[in-house]
Design a protein around this nucleic acid. Structure first.
Length: 103
DNA sequence: CGGTTGACTTTCG
DNA sequence: GCGAAAGCCAACC
């Protein structure tokens, strides 16, 4: 469908991630129709859009994109664990939780 | 209006 | 596993 702005696509792509699953910035960018613009995805989330479950978005290595000691990072981790996602050494098993946009 | 910055990714040594 | 470099582009100053 048409996009009034690229951010709209990013927001919807993030919103599509099912509960208990995670996605990388690159994946979201690809799903949103912005291949190679993973940075812009991160930037869009940094802007903290309203009602966006940004906590399901992780970096390509399965780590949180924010400093581990930051409040936002701790909140994100707590929310994911609450959804059933387990953190191993500050990291998530992408082979198991990465959302592949299969449905 | 030009330069810097950044919730990124990937490749190379 | 880690550091450096390059590609990307919107927001900020």
């Amino acid at each position: 469908m048409a996009v009034s702005s690229s951010y709209q696509a990013i927001y919807e792509a993030v919103a599509r991630v099912p509960r208990g699953r995670v996605a990388t910035y690159g994946d979201i960018a690809a799903v949103a129709g912005l291949p190679g613009r993973a940075r812009q995805v991160g930037y869009a989330l940094h802007r903290s859009p309203p009602g966006l479950p940004w906590h399901r978005i992780l970096r390509a290595d399965g780590r949180i994109a924010l400093p581990a000691d930051s409040t936002a990072a701790l909140t994100q981790r707590r929310r994911l664990e609450d959804e059933g996602v387990t953190f191993l050494g500050g990291r998530v098993d992408l082979d198991r939780y990465r959302w592949l946009q299969e449905s």
